[in-house]
Design a protein around this nucleic acid. Sequence first.
DNA 1: TTCTAAACGAGACGGTACGTCGAGTCTTAGG
DNA 2: CCTAAGACTCGACGTACCGTCTCGTTTAGAA
Lengths: 199, 199, 199, 199
Amino acid sequence: MSTKVAPDPSRRSETARRAILAAAIDLVGEVGYTKLSIEGIAHAAGVGKQTIYRWWSSKGSLLFDAFLTLAGEGEAAALPDTGDLAADLKLVLRATVDELDDPRYDQAMRAMHVEIVNDPILAADYVLRLDRPMRELKKERLRAAQRAGQLAEDVELEVAIDMLFGPILNRWLQRTGPLTHEYVDQVVDTALRGLQPRP
Amino acid sequence: MSTKVAPDPSRRSETARRAILAAAIDLVGEVGYTKLSIEGIAHAAGVGKQTIYRWWSSKGSLLFDAFLTLAGEGEAAALPDTGDLAADLKLVLRATVDELDDPRYDQAMRAMHVEIVNDPILAADYVLRLDRPMRELKKERLRAAQRAGQLAEDVELEVAIDMLFGPILNRWLQRTGPLTHEYVDQVVDTALRGLQPRP
Amino acid sequence: MSTKVAPDPSRRSETARRAILAAAIDLVGEVGYTKLSIEGIAHAAGVGKQTIYRWWSSKGSLLFDAFLTLAGEGEAAALPDTGDLAADLKLVLRATVDELDDPRYDQAMRAMHVEIVNDPILAADYVLRLDRPMRELKKERLRAAQRAGQLAEDVELEVAIDMLFGPILNRWLQRTGPLTHEYVDQVVDTALRGLQPRP
Amino acid sequence: MSTKVAPDPSRRSETARRAILAAAIDLVGEVGYTKLSIEGIAHAAGVGKQTIYRWWSSKGSLLFDAFLTLAGEGEAAALPDTGDLAADLKLVLRATVDELDDPRYDQAMRAMHVEIVNDPILAADYVLRLDRPMRELKKERLRAAQRAGQLAEDVELEVAIDMLFGPILNRWLQRTGPLTHEYVDQVVDTALRGLQPRP
DNA sequence: TTCTAAACGAGACGGTACGTCGAGTCTTAGG
DNA sequence: CCTAAGACTCGACGTACCGTCTCGTTTAGAA
């Protein structure tokens, strides 16, 4: 009655791990999500398929790790705070938009997105490890804005974040329009000012 | 030296077409996007695979048509206009959120979404045939609100729409939080009022 | 209770019939038996598939008819009789061997052969309509030889024919050796003289 | 830039190989050549299709191997030599005829035959691996007969073999007549004695 | 000569099998 | 015992033809 023995992480080959992650990012950037295969990644990484299956439970979790590697390396610990909320938000969102111009980043993020959309467990992992920490950073900046009187006290921060970042993410995913700096600025300005007429 | 002759639409079997679209929707609701296969759809529809390949160029475009069938049947010609913009928006967005509770609708929309994210051509088709008409309806309502003095004159309507609908779509796709009526109301209220403090 | 109505031969299109048989022969000569398809024949003949299915019950019987058309046109009514049996047999067999050099003839005959090998009913038809009449001609010549004292009285003519024509047919089918005039001559000479030493 | 890497025979599964060969023989015996499919063989053998395509280049070569397995197991190393050539030949040919009564053997041999007739490369392989060795055995027996004065010295052995075995093979393939022991005896007697009258 | 029923071309249909690709599992050799 | 390599079973891919079934459109015989 032999049960699947869990692999011993202490014996894991760091070389192989890095090669796999790098190959995944490279490949997804080259051929796109649809044509991405475990077999292809293993081959490109010079690695046996089993080595991938041993350490990742699904293509999604591999893609997720790969994306973390790609995104996490130059990650800011906090959002800029120059005292001008609008300017800071535009800065951050413009940088996001610029990143999505890099096909590697664009494709990797699309791939991860697809996996998340279809896998609730992976989505939970994503929320926990990537979305929540990022939101915390954003909230921090918004709270500072509240303290500085630039943001209404009674605004629900979660909603504020969704309203600032959601439109950009959607326009990128669905290609409903061009992702320009101008659009980013409009979103920030409109969100801050609100849709209602001001007296 | 002609390759692949285009099929004659006048000889198309309406029975088969309907069976395929229905089977696609049913199947994606049952097994989800990941396990969805052309073979499975053909079998469930009692149809030869070739009949699918003859009329649809990709799984994406089939899913797109299937979704149109599902969504288009009860389609409103215009957004409600009771004179109260906030109430009308909440009504529409709550209905959207409720629709996404139906696993069939939820799964079909996820499937279509995945295809669109990875296929720019399909995305263009989506924008043209589904997104743009819907936006036009929304813009119409917003213009009425402008005339009624409930919406600022200088607001860019595209941005307004993205700010109202984007957050809901994102929360649903990425499961970053529960899709409740309360959340919908918060989004509408916050978007209208704006993030800045009011004097 | 409508039963498949038999087609009326008097209304049959002779043009179509000829085009089909010609296309079958041409195609089998071009692409070989393996790649031969009813669809391809119909297309090459400029004919609907149904017209083939209406008049022939199987690919085999079509091929059989096609072969008859090809072979029957220059068919001799009787074997030559110069008084010299060996010479006459060699003449006939050399002509047979030469015919098999024409790829059209070779391929058509292979195709028909394959169908016959796997379809006893077709084989019976072949024996009745092609093999038996040909054998009768051959027997006639052999009987003449018996009368002329060139063939033993007690030889079973069926066996004699098999022994003269069988080796050539086999060598052609299985390519166990080159089909030369020299080989033909050896077969005739050996068959006539017998394998046993003569006193 | 290497295409299609050749598989490593040392890692080949003997179990799978045997199952495939056995399934091929069984299936061809059950359903006949026409209905025989790679898919069917794979299924019956409990094997993936790829495993067949990995090791055999065509249905023909698989059928050839299968036939070798079937035929090769009870293979005589040499033809009997009792000193009486006619009797020995009749013995061997009667045994051949009897084998063809077994539907498995009959169908398998028809299948292989069809493939050989339409594939020159396979035919060459057949000649090399099956026909030539068998002929060598037969020649050996005929040479012994020549030494014993039962066969003319100047007879071309290839021709002699074709004249003895060809008629039987043809009658079996084309079903031009019943394959009886009596017929076999007639062929042997007639071939030995020759068609010409004896003084 | 017109009428009309059939055969005709075209090709869509439900199917079966093709030969290929990749998923995920299992085995072998090597470090 | 992890690893690279790769053979294994399995399921789906997209294509080619099968034989059946409409569709209009000729076309030939009876009215």
